[in-house]
Write a protein that binds this DNA or RNA. Structure first.
Length: 562
RNA sequence: GGACCAGUAGCUCAGCUGGAUAGAGCAUCCGCCUUCUAAGCGGAGGGUCGUGAGUUCGAAUCUCACCUGGUUCACCA
Protein backbone atom coordinates (compact mmCIF):
# COMPACT_ATOMS: atom_id res chain seq x y z
CA UNK A 1 0.00 0.00 0.00
CA UNK A 2 1.12 3.49 -0.84
CA UNK A 3 0.72 5.28 2.47
CA UNK A 4 1.97 8.57 1.12
CA UNK A 5 -0.77 8.51 -1.47
CA UNK A 6 -3.31 7.77 1.22
CA UNK A 7 -2.16 10.84 3.12
CA UNK A 8 -2.33 12.97 -0.02
CA UNK A 9 -5.88 11.81 -0.66
CA UNK A 10 -6.88 12.60 2.90
CA UNK A 11 -5.61 16.14 2.48
CA UNK A 12 -7.24 16.72 -0.88
CA UNK A 13 -10.56 15.36 0.35
CA UNK A 14 -10.45 17.55 3.43
CA UNK A 15 -9.70 20.56 1.25
CA UNK A 16 -12.61 19.70 -0.96
CA UNK A 17 -10.43 19.57 -4.03
CA UNK A 18 -8.82 22.99 -3.60
CA UNK A 19 -5.43 21.34 -4.12
CA UNK A 20 -4.30 19.01 -6.89
CA UNK A 21 -3.59 15.50 -5.69
CA UNK A 22 -0.17 15.53 -7.31
CA UNK A 23 0.75 18.84 -5.68
CA UNK A 24 -0.25 17.54 -2.27
CA UNK A 25 1.63 14.31 -2.91
CA UNK A 26 4.80 16.13 -3.89
CA UNK A 27 4.70 18.37 -0.85
CA UNK A 28 4.34 15.57 1.66
CA UNK A 29 7.53 14.87 3.51
CA UNK A 30 8.89 12.51 6.09
CA UNK A 31 9.58 14.32 9.37
CA UNK A 32 13.08 13.95 10.68
CA UNK A 33 11.95 13.36 14.24
CA UNK A 34 9.69 10.39 14.98
CA UNK A 35 7.63 12.34 17.52
CA UNK A 36 6.42 14.42 14.57
CA UNK A 37 4.69 11.50 12.95
CA UNK A 38 5.28 9.38 9.86
CA UNK A 39 4.25 11.89 7.23
CA UNK A 40 3.91 15.65 7.35
CA UNK A 41 2.16 18.14 5.16
CA UNK A 42 3.47 21.71 5.27
CA UNK A 43 0.64 24.14 4.72
CA UNK A 44 2.65 27.06 3.32
CA UNK A 45 1.46 26.39 -0.23
CA UNK A 46 -2.12 27.09 0.86
CA UNK A 47 -1.39 30.32 2.68
CA UNK A 48 -1.68 32.50 -0.41
CA UNK A 49 -4.78 30.98 -1.95
CA UNK A 50 -6.63 30.68 1.35
CA UNK A 51 -5.39 34.00 2.70
CA UNK A 52 -4.77 32.50 6.09
CA UNK A 53 -1.82 31.88 8.32
CA UNK A 54 -0.28 28.43 7.79
CA UNK A 55 -0.72 27.59 11.48
CA UNK A 56 -4.41 28.21 11.25
CA UNK A 57 -4.74 26.22 8.04
CA UNK A 58 -3.04 23.29 9.72
CA UNK A 59 -5.44 23.38 12.63
CA UNK A 60 -8.50 23.59 10.43
CA UNK A 61 -7.22 20.84 8.19
CA UNK A 62 -6.79 18.49 11.12
CA UNK A 63 -10.42 18.99 12.05
CA UNK A 64 -11.75 18.22 8.61
CA UNK A 65 -9.53 15.21 7.88
CA UNK A 66 -11.09 11.80 8.29
CA UNK A 67 -8.81 10.36 10.96
CA UNK A 68 -10.22 6.86 11.11
CA UNK A 69 -7.44 5.22 9.12
CA UNK A 70 -4.71 6.86 11.19
CA UNK A 71 -3.48 6.46 14.70
CA UNK A 72 -3.77 10.22 14.94
CA UNK A 73 -3.46 13.40 12.92
CA UNK A 74 -2.29 16.56 14.63
CA UNK A 75 -1.30 20.09 13.84
CA UNK A 76 2.14 21.25 14.90
CA UNK A 77 2.67 24.84 13.91
CA UNK A 78 2.31 25.11 10.13
CA UNK A 79 2.48 21.33 9.69
CA UNK A 80 -0.12 18.60 9.72
CA UNK A 81 1.48 15.46 11.09
CA UNK A 82 0.11 12.03 10.27
CA UNK A 83 0.69 9.01 12.49
CA UNK A 84 -0.03 5.74 10.74
CA UNK A 85 -1.98 2.93 12.30
CA UNK A 86 0.72 0.60 13.59
CA UNK A 87 -1.41 -2.50 13.72
CA UNK A 88 -2.53 -2.41 10.12
CA UNK A 89 0.88 -1.28 8.90
CA UNK A 90 2.82 -3.96 10.73
CA UNK A 91 0.51 -6.69 9.52
CA UNK A 92 0.76 -5.64 5.90
CA UNK A 93 4.54 -5.25 5.92
CA UNK A 94 5.37 -8.40 7.81
CA UNK A 95 3.06 -10.50 5.68
CA UNK A 96 4.57 -9.11 2.52
CA UNK A 97 8.13 -9.84 3.63
CA UNK A 98 7.36 -13.31 4.97
CA UNK A 99 5.29 -14.38 1.99
CA UNK A 100 7.59 -13.01 -0.67
CA UNK A 101 10.81 -13.91 1.17
CA UNK A 102 13.74 -13.54 -1.24
CA UNK A 103 11.42 -12.01 -3.82
CA UNK A 104 10.38 -9.14 -1.57
CA UNK A 105 11.35 -5.99 -3.43
CA UNK A 106 11.42 -7.62 -6.86
CA UNK A 107 10.30 -5.31 -9.64
CA UNK A 108 9.49 -5.65 -13.31
CA UNK A 109 10.50 -2.23 -14.61
CA UNK A 110 13.33 -3.80 -16.59
CA UNK A 111 10.96 -5.83 -18.75
CA UNK A 112 13.70 -8.37 -19.41
CA UNK A 113 15.79 -5.79 -21.25
CA UNK A 114 19.44 -6.72 -21.60
CA UNK A 115 22.04 -4.50 -19.98
CA UNK A 116 25.70 -5.24 -20.72
CA UNK A 117 27.95 -3.90 -17.98
CA UNK A 118 31.57 -3.15 -18.76
CA UNK A 119 33.30 -3.73 -15.44
CA UNK A 120 36.51 -4.71 -13.65
CA UNK A 121 38.62 -4.85 -16.82
CA UNK A 122 42.10 -5.35 -15.43
CA UNK A 123 45.17 -5.25 -17.65
CA UNK A 124 46.91 -8.46 -18.57
CA UNK A 125 50.27 -8.91 -16.88
CA UNK A 126 49.44 -6.38 -14.20
CA UNK A 127 48.12 -7.13 -10.74
CA UNK A 128 44.58 -6.31 -9.68
CA UNK A 129 44.71 -3.37 -7.34
CA UNK A 130 42.27 -1.60 -5.09
CA UNK A 131 41.45 0.60 -8.07
CA UNK A 132 39.96 -2.35 -9.92
CA UNK A 133 37.98 -3.33 -6.86
CA UNK A 134 35.72 -0.34 -7.29
CA UNK A 135 34.73 -1.11 -10.86
CA UNK A 136 34.32 -4.77 -10.00
CA UNK A 137 32.10 -4.44 -6.95
CA UNK A 138 30.07 -1.50 -8.23
CA UNK A 139 29.46 -3.31 -11.52
CA UNK A 140 28.55 -6.50 -9.71
CA UNK A 141 26.13 -4.73 -7.41
CA UNK A 142 24.52 -2.89 -10.31
CA UNK A 143 24.10 -6.23 -12.05
CA UNK A 144 22.36 -7.60 -8.95
CA UNK A 145 20.13 -4.55 -8.70
CA UNK A 146 19.25 -4.71 -12.38
CA UNK A 147 18.40 -8.40 -12.13
CA UNK A 148 16.25 -7.69 -9.08
CA UNK A 149 14.27 -5.10 -11.01
CA UNK A 150 13.62 -7.21 -14.07
CA UNK A 151 16.57 -6.50 -16.34
CA UNK A 152 19.00 -9.05 -17.72
CA UNK A 153 22.49 -7.84 -16.85
CA UNK A 154 25.48 -9.13 -18.80
CA UNK A 155 28.70 -8.76 -16.87
CA UNK A 156 31.53 -8.11 -19.27
CA UNK A 157 35.15 -8.15 -18.20
CA UNK A 158 36.69 -6.00 -20.90
CA UNK A 159 40.25 -7.17 -20.34
CA UNK A 160 43.15 -4.91 -21.23
CA UNK A 161 44.75 -7.58 -23.36
CA UNK A 162 46.06 -5.53 -26.29
CA UNK A 163 48.27 -2.57 -26.91
CA UNK A 164 51.83 -1.43 -27.29
CA UNK A 165 52.65 -2.51 -23.75
CA UNK A 166 52.69 -6.09 -25.00
CA UNK A 167 55.55 -5.21 -27.28
CA UNK A 168 57.42 -3.95 -24.25
CA UNK A 169 56.50 -6.98 -22.23
CA UNK A 170 57.67 -9.41 -24.89
CA UNK A 171 60.94 -7.56 -25.34
CA UNK A 172 61.45 -7.47 -21.56
CA UNK A 173 60.67 -11.15 -21.26
CA UNK A 174 63.07 -12.04 -24.05
CA UNK A 175 65.80 -10.06 -22.36
CA UNK A 176 65.40 -10.92 -18.70
CA UNK A 177 62.62 -13.45 -18.27
CA UNK A 178 62.36 -17.16 -18.00
CA UNK A 179 59.52 -19.62 -18.36
CA UNK A 180 60.09 -21.12 -14.91
CA UNK A 181 59.92 -17.76 -13.21
CA UNK A 182 56.68 -16.80 -14.87
CA UNK A 183 55.11 -20.16 -14.15
CA UNK A 184 55.95 -19.87 -10.49
CA UNK A 185 54.53 -16.39 -9.98
CA UNK A 186 53.04 -15.07 -13.21
CA UNK A 187 51.69 -11.64 -12.37
CA UNK A 188 54.53 -10.53 -10.16
CA UNK A 189 57.20 -11.64 -12.57
CA UNK A 190 55.53 -10.11 -15.59
CA UNK A 191 55.07 -6.91 -13.66
CA UNK A 192 58.72 -7.01 -12.66
CA UNK A 193 59.82 -7.27 -16.30
CA UNK A 194 57.51 -4.47 -17.27
CA UNK A 195 58.73 -2.15 -14.53
CA UNK A 196 62.36 -2.98 -15.35
CA UNK A 197 61.72 -2.19 -18.99
CA UNK A 198 60.48 1.26 -18.04
CA UNK A 199 63.52 1.83 -15.90
CA UNK A 200 66.02 0.76 -18.52
CA UNK A 201 64.48 2.32 -21.58
CA UNK A 202 65.35 5.74 -20.24
CA UNK A 203 69.02 4.97 -20.66
CA UNK A 204 68.52 2.72 -23.67
CA UNK A 205 65.94 4.25 -26.02
CA UNK A 206 66.65 1.49 -28.52
CA UNK A 207 64.58 -0.80 -26.30
CA UNK A 208 61.50 1.11 -27.36
CA UNK A 209 62.27 0.37 -30.99
CA UNK A 210 62.52 -3.32 -30.23
CA UNK A 211 59.24 -3.17 -28.32
CA UNK A 212 57.55 -1.48 -31.25
CA UNK A 213 58.84 -4.19 -33.56
CA UNK A 214 57.45 -6.89 -31.28
CA UNK A 215 54.07 -5.28 -31.15
CA UNK A 216 54.06 -4.95 -34.93
CA UNK A 217 54.86 -8.65 -35.15
CA UNK A 218 52.03 -9.39 -32.77
CA UNK A 219 49.63 -7.39 -34.90
CA UNK A 220 50.82 -9.23 -38.01
CA UNK A 221 50.18 -12.56 -36.37
CA UNK A 222 53.78 -13.61 -35.92
CA UNK A 223 53.84 -17.06 -34.37
CA UNK A 224 56.27 -16.47 -31.52
CA UNK A 225 54.73 -13.15 -30.53
CA UNK A 226 51.21 -14.57 -30.59
CA UNK A 227 52.22 -17.57 -28.54
CA UNK A 228 53.79 -15.41 -25.86
CA UNK A 229 50.81 -13.10 -25.83
CA UNK A 230 48.42 -16.00 -25.40
CA UNK A 231 50.53 -17.39 -22.62
CA UNK A 232 50.73 -14.08 -20.77
CA UNK A 233 47.01 -13.71 -21.17
CA UNK A 234 46.09 -17.13 -19.86
CA UNK A 235 48.35 -17.09 -16.81
CA UNK A 236 47.11 -13.62 -15.96
CA UNK A 237 43.52 -14.68 -16.30
CA UNK A 238 44.12 -17.61 -13.99
CA UNK A 239 45.37 -15.37 -11.26
CA UNK A 240 42.52 -12.91 -11.82
CA UNK A 241 40.00 -15.69 -11.47
CA UNK A 242 41.56 -16.63 -8.17
CA UNK A 243 40.72 -13.15 -6.87
CA UNK A 244 37.25 -13.09 -8.39
CA UNK A 245 36.57 -16.40 -6.63
CA UNK A 246 37.55 -14.81 -3.35
CA UNK A 247 35.18 -11.94 -4.03
CA UNK A 248 32.47 -14.32 -5.14
CA UNK A 249 32.05 -12.53 -8.46
CA UNK A 250 31.58 -14.12 -11.86
CA UNK A 251 31.43 -12.76 -15.40
CA UNK A 252 29.35 -13.57 -18.42
CA UNK A 253 32.02 -12.55 -20.89
CA UNK A 254 35.78 -12.10 -20.93
CA UNK A 255 35.94 -10.52 -24.36
CA UNK A 256 38.73 -7.99 -24.04
CA UNK A 257 40.30 -5.41 -26.27
CA UNK A 258 41.98 -7.93 -28.53
CA UNK A 259 38.62 -9.37 -29.47
CA UNK A 260 37.88 -6.21 -31.42
CA UNK A 261 41.07 -6.22 -33.51
CA UNK A 262 39.26 -7.38 -36.62
CA UNK A 263 36.27 -5.08 -36.04
CA UNK A 264 38.05 -1.75 -36.35
CA UNK A 265 38.00 -1.47 -40.13
CA UNK A 266 34.24 -1.46 -40.17
CA UNK A 267 34.15 1.36 -37.65
CA UNK A 268 36.47 3.42 -39.80
CA UNK A 269 34.32 2.55 -42.81
CA UNK A 270 31.14 3.76 -41.12
CA UNK A 271 32.89 6.95 -40.11
CA UNK A 272 33.98 7.48 -43.69
CA UNK A 273 30.50 6.73 -45.00
CA UNK A 274 29.16 9.48 -42.80
CA UNK A 275 31.93 11.80 -43.87
CA UNK A 276 33.02 12.25 -40.29
CA UNK A 277 36.76 11.73 -40.65
CA UNK A 278 38.92 14.79 -40.99
CA UNK A 279 42.63 15.04 -41.34
CA UNK A 280 44.38 17.06 -38.70
CA UNK A 281 48.11 17.23 -38.07
CA UNK A 282 48.54 14.02 -40.01
CA UNK A 283 46.00 12.14 -37.93
CA UNK A 284 42.36 11.26 -38.57
CA UNK A 285 39.87 12.83 -36.23
CA UNK A 286 36.16 13.33 -35.72
CA UNK A 287 35.36 16.92 -34.95
CA UNK A 288 33.10 17.26 -31.91
CA UNK A 289 32.97 21.02 -31.70
CA UNK A 290 29.20 21.09 -31.67
CA UNK A 291 29.23 18.95 -28.53
CA UNK A 292 31.73 21.31 -26.97
CA UNK A 293 34.19 18.43 -26.85
CA UNK A 294 37.72 17.93 -28.06
CA UNK A 295 38.05 16.08 -31.33
CA UNK A 296 38.10 12.29 -31.10
CA UNK A 297 41.35 10.89 -32.43
CA UNK A 298 40.52 7.87 -34.54
CA UNK A 299 43.79 7.10 -36.31
CA UNK A 300 47.29 8.06 -35.32
CA UNK A 301 49.74 9.60 -37.76
CA UNK A 302 51.14 6.12 -38.40
CA UNK A 303 47.68 4.84 -39.27
CA UNK A 304 47.18 2.83 -36.08
CA UNK A 305 43.83 3.02 -34.37
CA UNK A 306 43.27 4.11 -30.80
CA UNK A 307 41.33 3.37 -27.68
CA UNK A 308 38.19 5.16 -28.79
CA UNK A 309 38.05 3.28 -32.09
CA UNK A 310 38.17 0.03 -30.17
CA UNK A 311 35.44 1.21 -27.83
CA UNK A 312 33.30 2.20 -30.77
CA UNK A 313 33.70 -1.29 -32.17
CA UNK A 314 32.83 -2.78 -28.78
CA UNK A 315 29.77 -0.57 -28.38
CA UNK A 316 28.47 -1.56 -31.80
CA UNK A 317 29.24 -5.21 -31.20
CA UNK A 318 27.32 -5.15 -27.94
CA UNK A 319 24.31 -3.52 -29.54
CA UNK A 320 24.26 -6.19 -32.24
CA UNK A 321 24.88 -9.07 -29.86
CA UNK A 322 22.55 -8.13 -27.02
CA UNK A 323 20.20 -5.54 -28.49
CA UNK A 324 20.57 -3.83 -25.13
CA UNK A 325 18.15 -1.37 -23.56
CA UNK A 326 21.08 0.19 -21.75
CA UNK A 327 24.82 -0.28 -21.98
CA UNK A 328 26.83 0.56 -18.88
CA UNK A 329 30.51 1.30 -18.39
CA UNK A 330 31.70 1.17 -14.81
CA UNK A 331 34.94 3.05 -15.32
CA UNK A 332 36.75 5.66 -13.24
CA UNK A 333 35.77 9.32 -13.33
CA UNK A 334 39.05 10.25 -15.00
CA UNK A 335 37.58 8.88 -18.21
CA UNK A 336 34.46 11.01 -18.18
CA UNK A 337 35.68 12.93 -21.19
CA UNK A 338 36.42 9.79 -23.15
CA UNK A 339 32.89 8.46 -22.71
CA UNK A 340 31.37 11.79 -23.64
CA UNK A 341 33.36 11.57 -26.86
CA UNK A 342 32.34 7.96 -27.37
CA UNK A 343 28.65 8.78 -27.07
CA UNK A 344 29.01 11.82 -29.30
CA UNK A 345 30.76 9.89 -32.04
CA UNK A 346 28.16 7.11 -31.89
CA UNK A 347 25.49 9.74 -32.26
CA UNK A 348 27.30 11.25 -35.24
CA UNK A 349 27.48 7.80 -36.78
CA UNK A 350 23.72 7.73 -36.75
CA UNK A 351 23.20 5.35 -33.84
CA UNK A 352 20.27 6.73 -31.90
CA UNK A 353 20.91 4.15 -29.19
CA UNK A 354 23.90 6.21 -28.10
CA UNK A 355 21.47 7.74 -25.60
CA UNK A 356 21.26 4.33 -23.91
CA UNK A 357 25.01 4.22 -23.34
CA UNK A 358 25.86 5.34 -19.82
CA UNK A 359 29.21 5.88 -18.22
CA UNK A 360 28.99 5.08 -14.51
CA UNK A 361 31.99 6.94 -13.12
CA UNK A 362 33.49 6.56 -9.68
CA UNK A 363 36.03 8.45 -7.61
CA UNK A 364 39.70 7.77 -7.35
CA UNK A 365 41.38 5.67 -4.69
CA UNK A 366 44.63 7.28 -3.66
CA UNK A 367 47.52 6.17 -1.50
CA UNK A 368 48.84 8.88 0.78
CA UNK A 369 47.02 11.35 -1.39
CA UNK A 370 48.63 10.19 -4.61
CA UNK A 371 47.15 8.33 -7.52
CA UNK A 372 47.92 4.64 -7.68
CA UNK A 373 50.34 3.81 -10.43
CA UNK A 374 51.59 0.40 -11.41
CA UNK A 375 54.61 1.73 -13.19
CA UNK A 376 55.88 3.68 -10.22
CA UNK A 377 55.16 0.76 -7.91
CA UNK A 378 52.54 2.68 -5.91
CA UNK A 379 50.04 -0.17 -5.79
CA UNK A 380 47.72 -1.65 -3.21
CA UNK A 381 47.25 -5.27 -4.15
CA UNK A 382 43.67 -6.39 -3.79
CA UNK A 383 44.61 -9.99 -3.09
CA UNK A 384 46.71 -8.88 -0.15
CA UNK A 385 43.98 -6.65 1.24
CA UNK A 386 41.46 -9.48 1.04
CA UNK A 387 43.80 -11.88 2.79
CA UNK A 388 44.54 -9.37 5.52
CA UNK A 389 40.83 -8.81 6.04
CA UNK A 390 40.16 -12.55 6.24
CA UNK A 391 42.97 -12.99 8.77
CA UNK A 392 41.63 -10.20 10.93
CA UNK A 393 38.14 -11.66 10.77
CA UNK A 394 39.55 -14.98 11.89
CA UNK A 395 41.26 -13.36 14.88
CA UNK A 396 38.03 -11.63 15.73
CA UNK A 397 36.13 -14.91 15.68
CA UNK A 398 38.74 -16.59 17.84
CA UNK A 399 38.33 -13.97 20.52
CA UNK A 400 34.55 -13.44 20.29
CA UNK A 401 33.13 -16.78 19.30
CA UNK A 402 35.83 -19.47 19.59
CA UNK A 403 33.36 -22.35 19.35
CA UNK A 404 32.07 -21.37 15.95
CA UNK A 405 32.06 -24.47 13.76
CA UNK A 406 32.72 -23.22 10.22
CA UNK A 407 35.05 -20.46 11.39
CA UNK A 408 37.14 -20.38 8.22
CA UNK A 409 34.17 -19.96 5.96
CA UNK A 410 32.69 -17.25 8.17
CA UNK A 411 36.02 -15.45 8.41
CA UNK A 412 36.11 -15.38 4.65
CA UNK A 413 32.59 -14.01 4.36
CA UNK A 414 33.15 -11.39 7.04
CA UNK A 415 36.58 -10.28 5.88
CA UNK A 416 35.66 -10.01 2.23
CA UNK A 417 32.30 -8.55 3.18
CA UNK A 418 34.02 -5.78 5.11
CA UNK A 419 36.16 -4.86 2.11
CA UNK A 420 33.29 -4.87 -0.37
CA UNK A 421 30.94 -3.01 1.93
CA UNK A 422 33.53 -0.38 2.66
CA UNK A 423 33.85 0.31 -1.02
CA UNK A 424 30.11 0.49 -1.62
CA UNK A 425 28.86 2.37 1.40
CA UNK A 426 29.79 5.81 0.12
CA UNK A 427 28.63 7.54 -2.99
CA UNK A 428 30.36 6.28 -6.10
CA UNK A 429 31.88 9.62 -6.96
CA UNK A 430 33.61 10.13 -3.61
CA UNK A 431 37.32 9.61 -3.76
CA UNK A 432 39.05 8.06 -0.82
CA UNK A 433 42.54 7.57 0.42
CA UNK A 434 43.38 3.94 1.07
CA UNK A 435 43.72 3.08 4.75
CA UNK A 436 43.82 -0.61 5.58
CA UNK A 437 42.62 -0.16 9.16
CA UNK A 438 39.60 1.68 7.80
CA UNK A 439 38.85 -0.91 5.12
CA UNK A 440 38.95 -3.88 7.49
CA UNK A 441 37.08 -2.26 10.37
CA UNK A 442 34.39 -4.48 11.88
CA UNK A 443 32.65 -2.01 14.18
CA UNK A 444 30.34 0.88 13.48
CA UNK A 445 29.01 1.50 10.00
CA UNK A 446 30.51 -1.58 8.37
CA UNK A 447 29.55 -4.73 6.54
CA UNK A 448 30.29 -6.92 9.57
CA UNK A 449 27.95 -4.74 11.64
CA UNK A 450 25.12 -5.59 9.29
CA UNK A 451 26.18 -9.24 9.16
CA UNK A 452 26.36 -9.41 12.92
CA UNK A 453 22.90 -7.93 13.28
CA UNK A 454 21.48 -10.56 11.03
CA UNK A 455 23.43 -13.35 12.76
CA UNK A 456 21.87 -12.34 16.05
CA UNK A 457 18.43 -12.33 14.48
CA UNK A 458 19.08 -15.82 13.14
CA UNK A 459 20.20 -16.89 16.57
CA UNK A 460 16.87 -15.85 18.04
CA UNK A 461 15.02 -17.79 15.36
CA UNK A 462 17.09 -20.88 16.07
CA UNK A 463 16.34 -20.63 19.78
CA UNK A 464 12.63 -20.10 19.12
CA UNK A 465 12.68 -23.26 17.05
CA UNK A 466 9.23 -22.89 15.58
CA UNK A 467 7.60 -22.02 12.31
CA UNK A 468 6.54 -18.38 12.20
CA UNK A 469 2.85 -18.07 11.34
CA UNK A 470 2.00 -15.39 8.77
CA UNK A 471 -1.58 -14.83 9.87
CA UNK A 472 -0.85 -13.43 13.32
CA UNK A 473 1.63 -10.66 12.77
CA UNK A 474 0.14 -7.49 14.22
CA UNK A 475 2.91 -5.71 16.09
CA UNK A 476 1.94 -2.32 17.46
CA UNK A 477 4.98 -2.10 19.75
CA UNK A 478 6.46 1.43 19.37
CA UNK A 479 9.96 -0.03 19.82
CA UNK A 480 9.52 -1.94 16.57
CA UNK A 481 8.12 0.98 14.62
CA UNK A 482 11.30 2.30 13.01
CA UNK A 483 12.27 -1.19 11.94
CA UNK A 484 8.87 -1.85 10.42
CA UNK A 485 9.07 1.35 8.42
CA UNK A 486 12.49 0.43 7.07
CA UNK A 487 11.22 -3.01 6.08
CA UNK A 488 8.41 -1.35 4.20
CA UNK A 489 10.84 0.95 2.38
CA UNK A 490 13.01 -1.81 0.89
CA UNK A 491 11.27 -2.01 -2.52
CA UNK A 492 11.36 1.73 -3.15
CA UNK A 493 14.95 1.87 -1.97
CA UNK A 494 15.94 -0.71 -4.57
CA UNK A 495 14.29 1.31 -7.31
CA UNK A 496 16.09 4.44 -6.21
CA UNK A 497 19.42 2.62 -6.19
CA UNK A 498 18.85 1.35 -9.73
CA UNK A 499 17.70 4.69 -11.07
CA UNK A 500 20.77 6.41 -9.69
CA UNK A 501 23.14 3.50 -10.42
CA UNK A 502 24.10 3.89 -6.80
CA UNK A 503 24.79 0.78 -4.69
CA UNK A 504 25.54 3.03 -1.71
CA UNK A 505 21.81 3.64 -1.40
CA UNK A 506 21.41 -0.05 -0.52
CA UNK A 507 24.41 -0.04 1.80
CA UNK A 508 23.02 2.93 3.71
CA UNK A 509 19.64 1.29 3.86
CA UNK A 510 21.13 -1.90 5.30
CA UNK A 511 22.94 0.13 7.96
CA UNK A 512 19.77 1.97 8.94
CA UNK A 513 17.70 -1.17 9.12
CA UNK A 514 20.39 -2.91 11.15
CA UNK A 515 20.70 0.03 13.50
CA UNK A 516 16.97 0.23 14.11
CA UNK A 517 16.79 -3.49 14.75
CA UNK A 518 19.71 -3.38 17.16
CA UNK A 519 17.86 -0.72 19.11
CA UNK A 520 14.81 -2.94 19.21
CA UNK A 521 16.94 -5.89 20.23
CA UNK A 522 18.46 -3.94 23.10
CA UNK A 523 15.11 -2.79 24.44
CA UNK A 524 12.70 -5.64 23.79
CA UNK A 525 12.91 -9.27 24.69
CA UNK A 526 11.68 -11.41 21.82
CA UNK A 527 11.58 -14.88 23.32
CA UNK A 528 8.84 -14.42 25.86
CA UNK A 529 5.79 -16.66 25.87
CA UNK A 530 2.89 -14.31 25.35
CA UNK A 531 0.34 -13.53 22.62
CA UNK A 532 2.79 -11.26 20.76
CA UNK A 533 5.54 -13.87 20.42
CA UNK A 534 4.67 -14.86 16.88
CA UNK A 535 4.48 -11.25 15.76
CA UNK A 536 7.90 -10.51 17.25
CA UNK A 537 9.38 -13.57 15.59
CA UNK A 538 7.83 -12.41 12.34
CA UNK A 539 9.67 -9.13 12.75
CA UNK A 540 12.94 -10.89 13.49
CA UNK A 541 12.59 -13.20 10.52
CA UNK A 542 11.65 -10.31 8.24
CA UNK A 543 14.69 -8.31 9.34
CA UNK A 544 16.96 -11.29 8.81
CA UNK A 545 15.51 -11.88 5.36
CA UNK A 546 15.74 -8.27 4.20
CA UNK A 547 19.25 -7.78 5.60
CA UNK A 548 20.40 -10.92 3.83
CA UNK A 549 18.91 -9.76 0.56
CA UNK A 550 20.19 -6.22 0.90
CA UNK A 551 23.70 -7.57 1.47
CA UNK A 552 23.25 -9.94 -1.45
CA UNK A 553 22.49 -6.97 -3.70
CA UNK A 554 25.88 -5.59 -2.69
CA UNK A 555 27.56 -8.91 -3.30
CA UNK A 556 28.15 -9.51 0.41
CA UNK A 557 27.40 -12.83 2.12
CA UNK A 558 25.35 -13.08 5.30
CA UNK A 559 26.46 -15.88 7.64
CA UNK A 560 23.75 -17.05 10.01
CA UNK A 561 26.29 -17.37 12.81
CA UNK A 562 29.45 -15.44 13.47
C1' G B 1 43.08 28.66 -19.46
C1' G B 2 38.44 25.17 -20.83
C1' A B 3 35.47 21.04 -18.92
C1' C B 4 34.05 17.89 -14.90
C1' C B 5 33.97 16.28 -9.56
C1' A B 6 34.35 17.66 -4.53
C1' G B 7 34.44 21.30 -0.09
C1' U B 8 28.88 19.75 6.19
C1' A B 9 31.64 18.01 13.83
C1' G B 10 38.98 16.55 15.22
C1' C B 11 38.65 12.34 11.17
C1' U B 12 35.29 9.55 7.44
C1' C B 13 30.74 10.65 5.58
C1' A B 14 24.60 10.96 5.47
C1' G B 15 21.18 14.68 4.53
C1' C B 16 15.66 12.08 -1.07
C1' U B 17 12.69 16.28 -6.07
C1' G B 18 14.21 23.49 -0.80
C1' G B 19 10.75 23.03 4.66
C1' A B 20 9.97 22.28 11.71
C1' U B 21 15.94 22.22 17.02
C1' A B 22 21.69 20.11 10.65
C1' G B 23 22.40 13.72 11.54
C1' A B 24 25.51 9.00 11.75
C1' G B 25 30.13 6.26 12.41
C1' C B 26 35.20 6.65 14.14
C1' A B 27 38.11 9.06 17.88
C1' U B 28 37.60 11.23 23.34
C1' C B 29 34.87 10.84 28.10
C1' C B 30 30.91 8.16 30.98
C1' G B 31 27.28 4.17 31.73
C1' C B 32 25.07 -1.12 30.38
C1' C B 33 26.85 -8.49 29.88
C1' U B 34 22.77 -13.69 36.42
C1' U B 35 18.04 -11.43 29.78
C1' C B 36 17.64 -13.92 22.83
C1' U B 37 25.89 -13.45 20.31
C1' A B 38 28.81 -6.49 24.09
C1' A B 39 31.37 -7.32 16.19
C1' G B 40 25.96 -4.59 20.44
C1' C B 41 22.98 -0.53 23.19
C1' G B 42 22.57 4.28 25.83
C1' G B 43 24.59 9.17 27.26
C1' A B 44 28.14 13.60 26.99
C1' G B 45 31.15 17.05 24.50
C1' G B 46 32.06 18.78 19.42
C1' G B 47 29.44 22.34 13.34
C1' U B 48 30.09 30.44 10.87
C1' C B 49 26.96 23.46 6.30
C1' G B 50 34.24 26.79 1.75
C1' U B 51 33.11 32.53 0.98
C1' G B 52 29.75 36.38 -0.82
C1' A B 53 25.43 37.74 -3.25
C1' G B 54 20.54 36.26 -5.39
C1' U B 55 15.59 33.51 -5.86
C1' U B 56 11.83 32.11 -1.92
C1' C B 57 7.09 32.59 3.25
C1' G B 58 11.53 29.27 4.00
C1' A B 59 18.29 27.51 1.34
C1' A B 60 23.30 22.62 3.55
C1' U B 61 19.82 21.74 -0.68
C1' C B 62 18.24 25.96 -6.38
C1' U B 63 21.09 30.31 -9.45
C1' C B 64 25.51 33.31 -10.14
C1' A B 65 30.41 34.85 -8.81
C1' C B 66 34.69 33.78 -6.15
C1' C B 67 38.23 30.68 -3.04
C1' U B 68 40.46 25.73 -2.11
C1' G B 69 41.56 20.58 -3.46
C1' G B 70 41.28 16.76 -7.24
C1' U B 71 40.62 14.77 -12.27
C1' U B 72 41.00 15.70 -17.35
C1' C B 73 42.05 18.50 -21.99
C1' A B 74 44.46 14.54 -29.75
C1' C B 75 48.54 10.43 -31.40
C1' C B 76 48.34 5.65 -23.59
C1' A B 77 44.15 2.89 -21.97
Amino acid sequence: MDYKKQVAESIVTALDGQLELQVAYDKIEIPKASNLGDFAFPTFVLAKTLHKAPQMIAQELVESIDQDVYEKVEAAGPYVNFFLDKSAFSQEVLQAVLNQADHYGDATVGQNGKVPIDMSSPNIAKPISMGHLRSTVIGNSLANLLAKTGYQPVKINHLGDWGTQFGKLIEAYKLWGSEEEVKADPINKLLEYYVRFHKEDKAHPELDDEARKWFKKLEDGDEEATKLWQWFRSVSLQSFKHIYDKLGITFDSYKGEAFYNDKMDEVVQILEDHNLLKESQGAEIVDLDKYNLNPALIKKTDGATLYITRDLAAAIYRKRTYDFVQSLYVVGAEQINHFKQLKAVLKEMGFDWSDDVHHIPFGLITLNGKKLSTRSGRVVLLDKVLDDAIDLAKQQIQSKNPDLKNADEVAHEVGVGAVIFHDLKNERMNSFDFDLSEVVRFEGETGPYVQYTRARAESILRKANKQVATDDVVLADPNAWETLKYLQAFPETILRAVNEYEPSVIAKYALHLAKSFNQYYANSKVLVEDDQLNARLALVQSVSSVLKNALALLGVKAPSEM
